[in-house]
């Protein structure tokens, strides 16, 4: 039963690829827009042999990591402080509520103006994308912690820092992990957009450059690799969740 259900999940994408391949070969769809899967794989092999693919992947990954840390860590700390302190929450909430709805992609020109065309603008875009989901989920995470646990902390003489460390952080952890997952998704979107403008490396650049050269296969390789990265990040985070939150009933 279990094996059968897994099989169904594998069949549908394989079937799609097979149909796609056949349709291109028969000439029912144009390889100009939808190159056959086999030729995309060919392009993938060629790009990875030449080292071009790795160059772009590593450039994007580095920006993602830096942006993630620069946006995520302050969001986490500030989120917990906001969750613990009502006055601070009331003070900062309007700032977040009013800036959150702005599409981060619409801020790209401003970010380019401030940070220039170099690495910093890309990192800043990722940081902004990660910041919002992490801070919002962290605040919610702290607020949903039953009050009794704070009473226990106070009754057993925990200091402010110890309340932060032993109650707020672990209590909010499941929500924080959700925030991080959403943040990484947002980071991937924004890095692709940021690299399409004024970059000379990265997966976004690769896709944009391929469009300008009408190199459709390379475009698909870029999309494929981004999808793959997202998939790997999800797996890694699930693993991290299992390791960080062994006390949760349902993982």
């Amino acid at each position: 039963m279990f094996f059968g259900e897994r099989l169904i999940g594998i069949i549908s994408p394989l079937l799609l690829l097979a149909v796609w391949e056949v349709f291109v070969r028969v000439g029912w769809i144009s390889p100009q827009f939808f190159p056959a899967p086999s030729s995309i794989v060919e392009a993938l092999i060629k790009l990875s042999r030449s080292g071009e693919l790795w160059l772009n992947v590593s450039a994007s990954l580095r920006r993602l990591v830096f942006g993630f840390v620069i946006g995520g860590v302050p969001a986490l700390v500030l989120g917990i402080i906001m969750g613990l302190s009502r006055p601070i929450r009331l003070f900062i909430d309007p700032l977040i509520a009013s800036t959150y709805p702005i599409p981060k992609s619409a801020l790209l020109p401003l970010v380019l103006l401030i940070f220039g065309l170099g690495e910093n603008s890309k990192i800043a875009m990722v940081a902004m994308g990660v910041f919002y989901p992490v801070i919002m989920n962290t605040v919610t995470g702290v607020l949903q912690i039953p009050k009794i646990y704070f009473d226990v902390g106070a009754n057993f003489g925990a200091s402010r820092w110890e309340i932060f460390r032993t109650v707020a952080l672990p209590g909010a952890a499941p929500f924080i992990v959700t925030g991080i997952k959403l943040g990484i998704g947002m980071g991937l979107i924004l890095i692709a957009i940021a690299e399409m403008v004024g970059a000379d490396s990265g997966l976004g650049y690769m896709i944009w450059n391929a469009w300008q050269l009408m190199d459709v296969e390379t475009m698909y390789v870029g999309l494929l690799v981004i999808a793959f990265l997202g998939f790997v990040f999800t797996l890694l985070l699930d693993e991290l969740e299992r390791w960080l939150l062994p006390w949760r009933k349902t993982i």
Binding site: D151, E162, W247
Partner: peptide, 21 residues
Amino acid sequence: GDSIFPWMSVWDNAAYGLKMR
């Protein structure tokens, strides 16, 4: 009612006050 921390093992829960001190 339930007041032991779900995120700590039995041992760490029982040791909580001593650790805080």
